[in-house]
Design a protein around this nucleic acid. Structure first.
Length: 262
DNA sequence: ATGGTCGAAAGTCGA
């Protein structure tokens, strides 16, 4: 039996129950990893997930901003809630699958608009978040899967216009380098690109501000599914569910769906 | 160079 893991920046879980329902109706999701749930754990819409069979909930939320959650058909064991900025923001939750594999669900800070540490502290915080994750990841040897909104589109084919976005936060060389260090620290395999290699374009986010997101197609690949080297041969597929961007009241991100034989 | 759109929250900010 394949195991299906989906990851989605839902941009408020309370505002978008219909997106969760449509996703689960469209694909056989076993474990759903959400980012930007934007609610405290006490406000989390538990009944929605229980009704959909995703009754094992592991929450790391906060009021208003950020927040990550894992909803699963299969039991999971809690592992950690990391705070790489030591500022209380809820951005990283980890659980253990019955097979022993650890699943990390991460929401990397967006980093503000100006790609300069001095002019924009949020940009420095994003780079520091990645550096602290890199230290942790380099020391970790157990087989793991890491999913989430990493808020960086690393490859030229991950954005609609590489040259135009070189100074736009999410695609600047310094961010791409930082993400590269994180990836190299553990030998993480970028499964999105294992199954959809360049020069194919692959996006997971389209701005709300576009007049016609589909026609202009000015997307970026901000969302990722990575796995440890030991798990690469167990991975079977990764799909970016582009159609979800056209669903009613969508998130600006679409789900990534990975299957593994584990 | 600007604004375009969302959500949560209050009458603005972060994305």
């Amino acid at each position: 039996m394949p195991l299906t893991i989906a990851s989605l920046n839902i941009n408020s879980v309370r505002a978008r129950p219909h997106i969760v329902e449509q996703l689960v109706a469209a694909r056989p999701v076993d474990i759903l990893c959400l980012q930007e749930t934007k609610c405290a754990d006490a406000e989390f819409p538990r009944a929605l997930f229980e009704r959909l069979g995703l009754r094992h909930l592991h929450l790391h939320g906060q009021r208003m901003h950020h927040g990550v959650a894992i909803a699963s058909r299969v039991p999971l064991a809690p592992v950690a809630r990391h705070d790489w900025q030591a500022n209380g923001e809820a951005r990283h939750i980890a659980v253990r699958l019955q097979s022993g594999i650890v699943l990390h669900n991460v929401y990397v800070p967006a980093g503000g608009d100006i790609p300069d540490r001095e002019a924009n502290p949020k940009f420095g915080q994003k780079l520091d978040f990645l550096a602290r994750m890199t230290d942790w990841s380099g020391a970790s040897t157990e087989p793991a899967i890491l999913v989430g909104d990493l808020n960086i589109a690393p490859l030229p084919e991950d954005v609609w216009d590489h040259r135009a976005l070189l100074d736009v936060v999410s695609h600047t060389p310094v961010e791409v380098e930082a993400l590269g260090h994180l990836q190299a620290s553990h030998g993480w395999c970028d499964l999105g690109r294992r199954f959809v290699p360049p020069p194919q374009r692959l996006y997971s986010w389209w701005s709300y501000r576009a007049r016609d997101w589909d026609a202009s197609d000015r997307g970026r690949r901000l969302d990722h599914i990575w796995c440890s080297p030991a798990l690469v041969d167990s991975s079977r597929s990764v799909e970016t569910l582009r159609a979800a961007r056209g669903w009613p009241k969508p998130s600006d991100h679409v789900p990534l769906i990975a299957t593994f034989d584990l």
